[in-house]
């Protein structure tokens, strides 16, 4: 079960509104698919991202996956702890393994296009089979 306090993209990213900011990470399903995560590449603070544009890359030993930004906005913080210890994304993808914080450009419209936790649970249920 994925937390219901946030929304999800079909590419397995999550976005959570906290005050004026939006926190972004990848889902537990995504980290399980990737296996041992060894490197995370994140944008610089200040970069502007459109919704669904490439946010960064995440690497396991033998695979590279793009991460897409589930919402648009400006990067205000990147998770240094994840850059230093990428295994945090494996250990706690919905919590301390978050990736970036954004100042959203149009949060409400972007969020309406994302999946609820129930919808996302259903999506991965189907993908797993």
């Amino acid at each position: 079960m994925n937390p219901s306090d946030r929304r999800y993209s079909k590419d397995h990213e999550w976005a959570q509104i906290v005050g004026e900011e939006v926190i972004i990470g990848i889902t537990n399903f995504a980290q399980e698919q990737l296996g041992d995560i060894v490197y995370v590449d994140l944008p610089e603070v200040g970069s502007n991202l459109d919704q669904s544009s490439k946010l960064g890359e995440i690497e396991s030993v033998k695979a590279v996956s793009d991460i897409f930004s589930p919402i648009g906005g400006a990067v205000i913080e990147v998770n240094q702890a994840v850059l230093d210890s990428p295994e945090l994304v494996n250990q706690d993808p919905s919590g301390s393994g978050w990736l970036v914080k954004l100042a959203p450009s149009d949060a409400s419209s972007d969020f309406s296009s994302l999946l609820t936790s129930d919808e996302y649970d259903e999506l991965i249920e189907n993908e797993a089979h």
């Binding site: 041992d36 060894v38 490197y39 690497e59 396991s60 030993v61 210890s85 990428p86 295994e87």
Partner: peptide, 10 residues
Amino acid sequence: RRLDEAKAAR
């Protein structure tokens, strides 16, 4: 035996 490739890359 099998080597820890994740450690090698991290």
